[in-house]
Simulated scan of single mutants.
Amino acid sequence: MKKLFLVIMALSLLLVTGCGKESLSSQEQGSGYTVVDARGKKITFASAPKRIVCLNYSATDILTDLIPTERIIATDMWAREEDLSNCYEKLKGIPVCENNPEQIMKFNPDLVILTEGRANELADTLDSVGVKTCVLRQPKTIQEIPDYIKIVGEVADTKAAADSLAEKVAAYIKASAGGQKIESVLLIHPNGGIGQKGSMPASICEACNIENLAAKYDFPQSSYLSKEQIIAMNPQRIIVLDWSFGGQHKNAEIRKEEILNDPSYQTVSAVQTGKVVIVPMKYMHCSSQYVMKNLEELKRIMRTTL
Protein backbone atom coordinates (compact mmCIF):
# COMPACT_ATOMS: atom_id res chain seq x y z
CA MET A 1 0.00 0.00 0.00
CA LYS A 2 2.81 2.41 0.86
CA LYS A 3 4.50 1.81 -2.49
CA LEU A 4 1.20 2.28 -4.34
CA PHE A 5 0.60 5.53 -2.47
CA LEU A 6 4.03 6.84 -3.51
CA VAL A 7 3.39 5.96 -7.15
CA ILE A 8 0.00 7.73 -7.12
CA MET A 9 1.51 10.80 -5.46
CA ALA A 10 4.36 10.81 -7.98
CA LEU A 11 1.88 10.87 -10.87
CA SER A 12 0.01 13.73 -9.20
CA LEU A 13 3.28 15.58 -8.75
CA LEU A 14 4.11 15.28 -12.44
CA LEU A 15 0.76 16.80 -13.36
CA VAL A 16 1.34 19.77 -11.05
CA THR A 17 5.00 20.53 -11.72
CA GLY A 18 5.16 19.51 -15.37
CA CYS A 19 7.43 17.09 -17.20
CA GLY A 20 8.15 15.52 -20.57
CA LYS A 21 9.09 17.11 -23.88
CA GLU A 22 8.50 20.72 -22.87
CA SER A 23 10.99 20.52 -19.98
CA LEU A 24 13.54 18.59 -22.03
CA SER A 25 13.24 21.09 -24.84
CA SER A 26 13.93 23.98 -22.46
CA GLN A 27 17.07 22.25 -21.21
CA GLU A 28 18.26 21.57 -24.75
CA GLN A 29 17.87 25.27 -25.57
CA GLY A 30 20.14 26.10 -22.64
CA SER A 31 17.55 27.82 -20.45
CA GLY A 32 17.84 25.27 -17.62
CA TYR A 33 20.64 24.61 -15.16
CA THR A 34 22.24 21.70 -13.34
CA VAL A 35 23.61 21.40 -9.81
CA VAL A 36 25.51 18.59 -8.08
CA ASP A 37 24.49 17.79 -4.52
CA ALA A 38 26.41 16.24 -1.60
CA ARG A 39 25.75 12.75 -2.95
CA GLY A 40 27.44 13.65 -6.21
CA LYS A 41 24.04 13.46 -7.91
CA LYS A 42 23.34 15.80 -10.83
CA ILE A 43 19.99 17.58 -10.57
CA THR A 44 18.74 19.38 -13.67
CA PHE A 45 16.13 22.14 -13.61
CA ALA A 46 14.26 23.55 -16.59
CA SER A 47 13.50 26.67 -14.53
CA ALA A 48 13.85 27.96 -10.98
CA PRO A 49 11.88 25.89 -8.42
CA LYS A 50 8.73 27.61 -7.17
CA ARG A 51 7.45 25.02 -4.69
CA ILE A 52 10.34 24.27 -2.34
CA VAL A 53 10.03 21.98 0.67
CA CYS A 54 13.13 22.79 2.70
CA LEU A 55 13.89 20.28 5.45
CA ASN A 56 17.27 21.82 6.22
CA TYR A 57 16.90 24.71 8.67
CA SER A 58 20.19 26.43 7.80
CA ALA A 59 19.30 26.37 4.10
CA THR A 60 15.93 27.87 5.05
CA ASP A 61 17.82 30.67 6.84
CA ILE A 62 19.65 31.41 3.60
CA LEU A 63 16.68 31.06 1.27
CA THR A 64 14.59 33.60 3.18
CA ASP A 65 17.18 36.26 2.28
CA LEU A 66 17.51 35.15 -1.35
CA ILE A 67 13.99 34.41 -2.60
CA PRO A 68 10.38 35.40 -1.82
CA THR A 69 9.06 33.22 0.98
CA GLU A 70 6.12 32.31 -1.29
CA ARG A 71 8.51 29.93 -3.04
CA ILE A 72 9.03 28.03 0.24
CA ILE A 73 5.89 25.95 0.72
CA ALA A 74 7.00 23.94 3.79
CA THR A 75 9.91 23.61 6.22
CA ASP A 76 11.02 21.23 8.94
CA MET A 77 10.12 21.84 12.58
CA TRP A 78 13.63 23.05 13.43
CA ALA A 79 13.18 26.15 11.27
CA ARG A 80 10.45 27.15 13.76
CA GLU A 81 12.57 26.75 16.92
CA GLU A 82 13.42 30.24 18.15
CA ASP A 83 16.66 29.11 19.80
CA LEU A 84 17.86 27.27 16.67
CA SER A 85 16.41 29.12 13.68
CA ASN A 86 17.33 32.67 12.71
CA CYS A 87 14.39 33.17 10.34
CA TYR A 88 11.45 31.66 12.22
CA GLU A 89 9.57 34.99 12.25
CA LYS A 90 9.65 35.10 8.43
CA LEU A 91 7.95 31.71 8.16
CA LYS A 92 4.56 32.55 9.64
CA GLY A 93 1.80 30.84 7.68
CA ILE A 94 4.15 28.33 6.05
CA PRO A 95 3.34 24.72 7.05
CA VAL A 96 5.70 22.34 8.82
CA CYS A 97 6.49 19.12 6.98
CA GLU A 98 7.62 15.83 8.51
CA ASN A 99 10.62 13.91 7.19
CA ASN A 100 8.68 11.19 5.41
CA PRO A 101 7.89 10.76 1.71
CA GLU A 102 4.11 10.57 2.08
CA GLN A 103 3.96 13.91 3.93
CA ILE A 104 6.41 15.57 1.56
CA MET A 105 4.60 14.50 -1.61
CA LYS A 106 1.30 15.90 -0.38
CA PHE A 107 2.83 19.35 -0.90
CA ASN A 108 3.54 18.60 -4.59
CA PRO A 109 7.04 20.15 -4.39
CA ASP A 110 9.23 20.84 -7.40
CA LEU A 111 12.28 20.67 -5.09
CA VAL A 112 13.02 19.09 -1.72
CA ILE A 113 16.15 20.20 0.17
CA LEU A 114 17.58 17.80 2.76
CA THR A 115 20.62 17.56 5.03
CA GLU A 116 23.31 14.99 4.32
CA GLY A 117 23.37 12.04 6.70
CA ARG A 118 20.20 10.48 8.00
CA ALA A 119 18.17 12.00 5.16
CA ASN A 120 20.10 10.21 2.40
CA GLU A 121 17.72 7.24 2.45
CA LEU A 122 14.75 9.61 2.26
CA ALA A 123 16.39 11.35 -0.70
CA ASP A 124 16.81 8.05 -2.53
CA THR A 125 13.13 7.22 -1.92
CA LEU A 126 12.00 10.58 -3.28
CA ASP A 127 14.32 10.23 -6.28
CA SER A 128 12.77 6.85 -7.06
CA VAL A 129 9.32 8.41 -7.48
CA GLY A 130 10.50 11.39 -9.50
CA VAL A 131 10.73 14.12 -6.86
CA LYS A 132 13.70 16.45 -7.40
CA THR A 133 15.75 16.20 -4.23
CA CYS A 134 18.94 18.03 -3.30
CA VAL A 135 21.05 16.88 -0.35
CA LEU A 136 23.32 19.52 1.18
CA ARG A 137 26.43 18.98 3.31
CA GLN A 138 26.46 21.22 6.38
CA PRO A 139 29.52 23.43 6.95
CA LYS A 140 31.77 22.37 9.81
CA THR A 141 33.56 25.71 10.12
CA ILE A 142 32.49 29.31 9.62
CA GLN A 143 35.02 29.56 6.78
CA GLU A 144 32.87 27.08 4.83
CA ILE A 145 29.69 29.16 5.19
CA PRO A 146 30.26 31.45 2.15
CA ASP A 147 30.55 28.45 -0.19
CA TYR A 148 27.48 26.91 1.42
CA ILE A 149 25.50 30.08 0.71
CA LYS A 150 26.63 29.91 -2.92
CA ILE A 151 25.47 26.30 -3.22
CA VAL A 152 22.02 27.13 -1.82
CA GLY A 153 21.83 30.05 -4.26
CA GLU A 154 22.71 27.81 -7.20
CA VAL A 155 20.01 25.32 -6.23
CA ALA A 156 17.36 28.07 -6.00
CA ASP A 157 18.65 29.78 -9.19
CA THR A 158 19.65 32.98 -7.36
CA LYS A 159 23.38 32.79 -8.03
CA ALA A 160 24.09 36.53 -8.26
CA ALA A 161 22.33 37.35 -4.97
CA ALA A 162 23.94 34.37 -3.24
CA ASP A 163 27.42 35.30 -4.47
CA SER A 164 26.95 38.84 -3.17
CA LEU A 165 25.77 37.59 0.23
CA ALA A 166 28.62 35.07 0.40
CA GLU A 167 31.19 37.79 -0.29
CA LYS A 168 29.72 39.89 2.51
CA VAL A 169 29.97 36.99 4.96
CA ALA A 170 33.52 36.14 3.87
CA ALA A 171 34.61 39.75 4.36
CA TYR A 172 33.04 39.82 7.84
CA ILE A 173 34.76 36.59 8.88
CA LYS A 174 38.13 37.92 7.75
CA ALA A 175 37.67 41.31 9.44
CA SER A 176 36.28 39.98 12.73
CA ALA A 177 39.17 37.66 13.62
CA GLY A 178 40.89 38.24 16.96
CA GLY A 179 39.61 40.38 19.80
CA GLN A 180 39.76 39.97 23.56
CA LYS A 181 40.46 36.39 24.61
CA ILE A 182 37.90 34.72 26.87
CA GLU A 183 39.66 31.95 28.79
CA SER A 184 38.53 28.55 30.06
CA VAL A 185 35.02 28.14 28.62
CA LEU A 186 32.90 25.00 28.37
CA LEU A 187 29.71 24.67 26.32
CA ILE A 188 26.96 22.55 27.86
CA HIS A 189 24.32 21.11 25.55
CA PRO A 190 21.18 19.56 27.12
CA ASN A 191 22.89 16.18 26.67
CA GLY A 192 26.33 17.17 27.99
CA GLY A 193 29.47 19.09 27.07
CA ILE A 194 30.19 19.87 23.40
CA GLY A 195 32.67 21.80 21.28
CA GLN A 196 34.83 18.97 19.98
CA LYS A 197 37.46 19.56 17.31
CA GLY A 198 36.05 19.86 13.81
CA SER A 199 32.61 21.02 14.94
CA MET A 200 30.83 24.28 14.18
CA PRO A 201 30.75 25.28 17.89
CA ALA A 202 34.54 24.85 18.02
CA SER A 203 34.93 27.01 14.92
CA ILE A 204 32.66 29.73 16.32
CA CYS A 205 34.56 29.74 19.61
CA GLU A 206 37.82 30.13 17.71
CA ALA A 207 36.37 33.02 15.68
CA CYS A 208 35.32 34.77 18.90
CA ASN A 209 38.68 34.06 20.57
CA ILE A 210 36.97 31.88 23.17
CA GLU A 211 39.17 29.23 24.78
CA ASN A 212 36.98 26.20 24.19
CA LEU A 213 38.08 23.50 26.64
CA ALA A 214 36.28 20.70 24.79
CA ALA A 215 38.43 21.26 21.69
CA LYS A 216 41.44 20.05 23.68
CA TYR A 217 39.93 16.58 23.94
CA ASP A 218 39.45 14.06 21.17
CA PHE A 219 35.92 12.63 21.30
CA PRO A 220 33.42 11.71 18.54
CA GLN A 221 31.20 14.37 16.96
CA SER A 222 28.03 12.57 17.98
CA SER A 223 28.97 12.19 21.65
CA TYR A 224 28.93 14.46 24.69
CA LEU A 225 31.18 15.11 27.67
CA SER A 226 29.83 13.61 30.89
CA LYS A 227 29.29 15.48 34.14
CA GLU A 228 32.41 13.80 35.54
CA GLN A 229 34.49 15.01 32.59
CA ILE A 230 33.11 18.54 32.90
CA ILE A 231 34.00 18.64 36.59
CA ALA A 232 37.51 17.36 35.86
CA MET A 233 38.02 20.16 33.30
CA ASN A 234 37.08 22.75 35.94
CA PRO A 235 36.02 25.52 33.51
CA GLN A 236 36.14 29.12 34.69
CA ARG A 237 33.11 29.93 32.54
CA ILE A 238 30.14 27.82 31.44
CA ILE A 239 27.80 28.51 28.53
CA VAL A 240 24.45 26.74 28.86
CA LEU A 241 23.08 26.29 25.35
CA ASP A 242 19.37 26.97 25.11
CA TRP A 243 17.41 24.60 22.88
CA SER A 244 14.25 22.72 23.81
CA PHE A 245 14.61 20.11 21.01
CA GLY A 246 10.92 20.37 20.26
CA GLY A 247 10.03 20.48 23.94
CA GLN A 248 12.02 17.37 24.86
CA HIS A 249 14.68 19.24 26.87
CA LYS A 250 14.32 21.23 30.05
CA ASN A 251 14.16 25.01 29.94
CA ALA A 252 17.67 26.53 29.95
CA GLU A 253 16.93 28.56 33.09
CA ILE A 254 16.08 25.34 34.92
CA ARG A 255 19.23 23.65 33.63
CA LYS A 256 21.36 26.62 34.69
CA GLU A 257 19.92 26.52 38.22
CA GLU A 258 20.50 22.77 38.38
CA ILE A 259 24.17 23.29 37.53
CA LEU A 260 24.59 26.08 40.08
CA ASN A 261 22.91 24.06 42.84
CA ASP A 262 24.20 20.58 42.03
CA PRO A 263 26.46 19.49 44.95
CA SER A 264 28.82 17.68 42.56
CA TYR A 265 29.47 20.93 40.64
CA GLN A 266 30.42 23.00 43.69
CA THR A 267 34.16 22.51 43.12
CA VAL A 268 33.92 23.92 39.57
CA SER A 269 35.35 27.44 39.28
CA ALA A 270 32.51 28.74 37.06
CA VAL A 271 29.92 27.61 39.60
CA GLN A 272 31.83 29.10 42.53
CA THR A 273 32.02 32.51 40.82
CA GLY A 274 28.57 32.33 39.21
CA LYS A 275 30.00 32.68 35.71
CA VAL A 276 27.30 30.60 34.06
CA VAL A 277 25.39 32.18 31.18
CA ILE A 278 22.61 31.08 28.83
CA VAL A 279 23.15 31.42 25.07
CA PRO A 280 20.73 30.36 22.29
CA MET A 281 21.87 27.26 20.44
CA LYS A 282 21.80 29.15 17.13
CA TYR A 283 24.78 31.24 18.24
CA MET A 284 26.91 28.08 18.28
CA HIS A 285 25.20 26.19 15.45
CA CYS A 286 24.88 28.71 12.64
CA SER A 287 25.64 27.86 9.01
CA SER A 288 24.14 30.89 7.30
CA GLN A 289 24.61 34.63 6.81
CA TYR A 290 23.23 35.11 10.32
CA VAL A 291 26.65 34.10 11.62
CA MET A 292 27.56 37.79 11.34
CA LYS A 293 24.80 38.91 13.70
CA ASN A 294 25.16 35.91 16.01
CA LEU A 295 28.92 36.26 16.49
CA GLU A 296 28.56 39.91 17.41
CA GLU A 297 25.86 39.10 19.94
CA LEU A 298 27.91 36.22 21.35
CA LYS A 299 30.93 38.49 21.77
CA ARG A 300 28.76 41.07 23.54
CA ILE A 301 27.41 38.46 25.96
CA MET A 302 30.88 37.15 26.71
CA ARG A 303 32.27 40.64 27.34
CA THR A 304 29.43 41.84 29.54
CA THR A 305 28.47 38.74 31.54
CA LEU A 306 31.54 36.52 31.75
Score class of each variant (00 low, 15 high):
Leu14Gln: 15
Gly18Gln: 06
Glu22Trp: 08
Ser25Leu: 15
Ser26Trp: 07
Gln27Glu: 11
Gly30His: 03
Tyr33Asp: 10
Val36Leu: 00
Lys42Pro: 02
Lys50Val: 12
Arg51Met: 01
Cys54Ala: 13
Pro68Phe: 01
Thr69Met: 05
Asp83Pro: 03
Leu84Ser: 15
Cys87Val: 15
Cys87Lys: 09
Cys97Tyr: 00
Pro101Ile: 06
Pro101Gly: 07
Asn120Val: 02
Ala123Val: 07
Val129Pro: 03
Val131Tyr: 09
Arg137Glu: 03
Pro146Thr: 07
Ile149Tyr: 04
Lys159Asn: 07
Ala160Lys: 13
Ala162Arg: 00
Ala162Ile: 01
Asp163Lys: 09
Ala166Glu: 02
Lys168Trp: 01
Ala170Ser: 15
Ala170Asn: 14
Tyr172Pro: 11
Lys174Trp: 02
Gly178Arg: 13
Leu186Asn: 00
Ile188Glu: 15
Gly193Gln: 02
Lys197Trp: 06
Pro201His: 12
Asn212Trp: 12
Asn212Thr: 12
Leu213Val: 11
Pro220Tyr: 06
Gln221Pro: 11
Ser222Gln: 13
Glu228Phe: 11
Ile231Ala: 04
Ile239Trp: 06
Gly246Cys: 11
His249Asp: 15
His249Leu: 08
Lys256Val: 11
Tyr265Asp: 06
Thr267Pro: 04
Val268Asn: 04
Ser269Ile: 07
Val276Gln: 04
His285Leu: 07
His285Phe: 10
Tyr290His: 12
Glu296Met: 10
Glu297Ser: 09
Ile301Asn: 04
